[in-house]
Design a protein around this nucleic acid. Structure first.
Lengths: 139, 139
DNA sequence: GTCTCTGTACATTGTACACGTACAGCATAC
DNA sequence: GTATGCTGTACGTGTACAATGTACAGAGAC
């Protein structure tokens, strides 16, 4: 029931602010750092913290609500809810993930991050990811 | 000196077409599947293949030319050139990479891809990445 | 020179992001 | 119960950018 951990976005980034906000919060949700019952800051409060417009935060919240993570209620704030387990991903989703990962790694390498450093990061994240949830299925 | 391997983009994706094209080619360049001396398809040819406008392909090529991968010459086509080794990345670049990787993995998990499947993909890519280039520095 | 290939420049159109402002639902104090 | 102040939401606007249509300019074959 505490307030959400700190979130940071980069206004100079080319990825939209609302998408960055949604992405940050989604990461907290997926990793379990934010669970059902928690309250998120109000759209105006988070907007103040991040120095954006409250409608921008609202858009991010709506994205997550559409995914089933949040419940938005006028006058009452935003709550994290128990989310239904998502359907098994199609081949398209898996392929898209692979493509995006590939492009991200290539961009990192092009920026000068060494292959070994990239591989190290991947290994670290792989370890973290395994702790996110008890892998039930086998997709 | 052959023509480039096949490239595929997703018009329904929200990432711009020119960025997808640049990303795909960059991945080929970084991994060494495309090296100095190779010729890329003309902007009009690749535009036909991908079903986009040739100016869109040109924009992708310019992105890569700005990064030092390609040489564009009017009337002569596009060549892959020897690229100067990029400067060591700043802390900001590394942090941005980490953030984007984190968000990508969270999104994949939210779409239903299991943590174990994600971790497996990470391990596979980590192996590939190590073969990209002889890691000289230690960043 | 002429033709045809190449990449490039520029104007136009559609779309999406971020914002300002006003509104509507809910909780609380009194 | 009513007033007040909080909440998220709806809508219009300015701006930026992606993708395109069209016309141009450099390079080579003949």
């Amino acid at each position: 029931m505490q307030s959400a951990p700190h979130i940071r976005i980069d206004v100079s980034s080319q990825t939209p602010a609302y998408e960055q906000i949604a992405g940050e919060i989604r990461a907290l949700l997926v990793s379990g750092q934010l669970g059902p019952g928690w309250r998120l800051p109000t759209v105006r409060q988070l907007a103040l913290d991040l120095n954006v417009h409250h409608n921008t935060v609202a858009q991010a919240y709506r994205v997550l609500a559409a995914e089933g993570w949040l419940e938005l209620r006028r006058g009452r704030g935003v709550r994290v809810v128990q989310r239904a387990k998502p359907a098994a991903p199609g081949a398209k989703a898996r392929r898209r993930f692979q493509t995006q990962l590939n492009r991200l790694l290539a961009k990192a390498a092009a920026e000068g991050i060494s292959p070994s450093a990239i591989a190290r990061q991947l290994a670290l994240h792989a370890r973290d990811v395994r702790n996110w949830a008890p892998a039930k299925g086998s997709n």
